[in-house]
């Protein structure tokens, strides 16, 4: 990509996260993230999609260092964050990257008030003056569409959508440069999903946040993101501008993913042709596989032989 070096906020290079279980003969290595490279520009929303178990959550958690990478390099704002995790790096991470989790019930401590939950990040950051903290919490609540008086309540008093907004307020209070949103809307009802998406959209616009948005619902990702990356079995199979990936998918897996989204259009649904993906026809462990550029802002994981076919397809579309 010919983006300006300075524009790039997060740069992931050939990242691997492997989980090892057992010893000796029973040793099993799960390659959850298996060589993923991508870049996220400042102020951009990067949507990461894929089925469950494809490694998208692991990737997000490796970036924020909840997991340690097996190999590869992650640079954030010019600083390598995949190295040894010491107290200083930890501090750098917590004050620059925040995370919103999937399940708003499980991710909020039921015995803490909203005030305590949201202010926890500030405490770690060293802001302890009570009045300041209260003001900041009130402001954060206001930003996500809640009221400052909600601060004294407990999580169980809120509905699902409100809880998720508390989760977002908690992420925002440290004024991070980037937010990793790990399926923030999957556990919510359709009407409530729209509330949360709108809150995230407003924040993105007002605060210039960079968001790594992880989800399995492609239609929401398409609506929300500037760039989409499609993951399959621990690898990035297709990546590019949201419109290009959505309207002109090249990789057979992306095609099947897009063709299986149910759309609220009854006649359209009836005449729609579903593409199914046959994993046995493509060897995902092929050593010649490499992310290749097929057109401006659109790249795909392929072997050199397939490459020409894809370039033709891209230009035709």
């Amino acid at each position: 990509m010919n983006a300006n070096e300075r524009d790039i906020l997060l740069d992931v290079k050939n990242l691997h996260t492997h989980f090892i279980s057992g010893h000796g003969k029973t040793k099993v290595t799960v390659k959850a993230v298996n060589g993923v490279s991508f870049q996220v520009k400042n102020g951009e929303t990067f949507g990461l999609v894929g089925e469950s178990g494809c490694g998208k959550t692991t990737l997000g958690r490796t970036i924020i260092r909840l997991y340690n990478p097996s190999s590869g390099e992650v640079t954030f704002g010019g600083r390598i964050i995949s190295g040894k995790k010491d107290a200083e790096l930890q501090k750098f991470l917590t004050s620059n990257i925040a995370m919103v989790f999937q399940d708003p019930i499980a991710s909020l401590n039921p015995r803490m008030t909203v005030q305590e939950i949201i202010a926890e990040g500030l405490k770690i950051k060293g802001i302890k003056d009570e009045a300041t903290v209260r003001n900041m919490v009130g402001e954060a609540l206001y930003r996500v569409g809640l009221l400052p008086e909600h601060a004294t309540r407990y999580p169980h008093e809120f509905s699902g959508g409100q809880r998720q907004r508390i989760g977002i307020a908690r992420a925002l209070i440290v004024e991070p440069t980037m937010v990793i949103a790990d399926e923030p809307i999957s556990a919510l009802d359709v009407s409530i999903q729209a509330q949360v998406i709108n809150v995230l959209n407003d924040l993105k616009r007002d605060m210039g946040l960079t968001i790594l948005f992880i989800a399995h619902d492609l239609s929401v990702v398409k609506y929300f993101s500037d760039t989409i990356g499609v993951m399959y079995k621990g690898r990035m199979v297709e990546m590019g501008d949201a419109d290009k990936v959505y309207h002109n998918p090249l990789h057979p897996y992306t095609k099947s993913l897009i063709s299986s989204i149910p759309l609220p259009n009854p006649h359209g649904e009836r005449r729609r042709v579903r593409v199914s993906y046959d994993p046995s026809a493509y060897n995902i462990d092929d050593e010649r596989l490499e992310m290749r550029h097929v057109e401006e802002g659109h790249s795909i994981l392929c072997t050199p032989d397939e490459y020409e076919k894809y370039v033709l397809m891209a230009n035709r579309g």
Binding site: V190, S191, I192, Q193, A194, Q195, I197, N198, N201, S219, V220, K222, Y223, Y246, H247, L263, P264, N265
Partner: peptide, 18 residues
């Protein structure tokens, strides 16, 4: 409200939330 809460392939506008 239910129909407009879900983005379709073309939506760009702010989603309608209840």
């Amino acid at each position: 409200a239910l129909l407009s809460a879900m983005p379709d392939s073309e939506s760009r506008e702010r989603l309608f939330s209840i």
